[in-house]
Design a binder for these strands. Structure first.
Lengths: 149, 149
DNA sequence: ATAACTGCAAAACATTTGCATACAG
DNA sequence: CTGTATGCAAATGTTTTGCAGTTAT
């Protein structure tokens, strides 16, 4: 019965979203939410399923994918499509908006935040008359170690 | 026998890359290169294959994927992993470095360029001691038309 | 010659779907 | 009760792979 800071808050956000869309509050969905919020950093659907199964929480792959979609809808989770073929997810509530820096050699992922991005969003949105809702910036390069060898 | 501006230049870049890596200059590879450079905007592997087959150029799916990888390696093509599950490609030689603005409702894709990105690359690369080689910025939002309804 | 490339079809992979059963509201 | 959600396994769609035959160098 593990708990994390803000568990109640996050559960309430999810519950509200489900109520708003006439969807059920099932135990599976909350188990998945909890597991996501106990996870630091990026994860993929398969490893999330694996951890749940190992803990003895009976959920199926279909339910994991379905629930991740719901969590993305209500902004409790963000989905990233870095380079590979499978999506990565990350919890998003009360977590700073950030971008990513990836080493193409060793795969290390770092996070950063640059205020100029807000300026870019505002300006580009203004020019093309778009209402910008989110963005994804990923910088690819070589870290110090990999550059060494 | 269609030709596009810079065909000779682009073919030579590819030929050089193949020579450098002891790889063969096959007619299939150059047919694919030509087709890529006759295509404006984004495309995926399957539609490229379809166009080649329709033109009577005998290439297989495997060869299309293999060749696209080679073209990405020598920077003649960039691969994008927007939202969906399949990769999009785009020719890159003598084409401005740009980023993308996508309407989440209708899927429209616009291109833009903001010089501040260079500042972000330089600063973040400096702070984390990374040699930044490329970046991908995508802004998601609602275009004027979709916002209207 | 001979190592690399091609085409084909099968395999692999993440993700989605169909359907019978279970359960939240 | 009743419509949704679940679990399972089969289906999907994209990309990769193995192999026998072909070809550039």
């Amino acid at each position: 019965m593990s708990v994390f800071p803000q568990q109640a808050e996050v559960r309430e956000v999810f519950a509200q979203h489900l109520r708003d869309n006439n969807q059920r509050q099932t135990p599976e969905r909350f188990s998945i939410l909890d597991e996501v919020y106990e996870t630091d950093g990026h994860f993929d659907a398969e490893s999330l399923l694996k951890k749940l199964v190992e803990k003895g929480v009976g959920v199926s792959r279909a339910t994991v994918y379905n629930t991740l979609d719901l969590l993305v809808e209500c902004d409790l989770v963000v989905r990233h499509q870095f380079g590979g073929k499978h999506a990565k997810y990350e919890r998003a509530y009360a977590y700073w908006q950030h971008d990513h820096l990836i080493c193409e050699q060793c795969g290390e992922v770092l996070e950063f935040c640059d205020p100029r991005l807000q300026g870019v969003r505002d300006m580009v949105g203004g020019i093309y008359d778009f209402e910008i809702r989110r963005h994804a910036l990923t910088l690819y390069g070589l870290c110090r170690r990999c550059r060494g060898r």
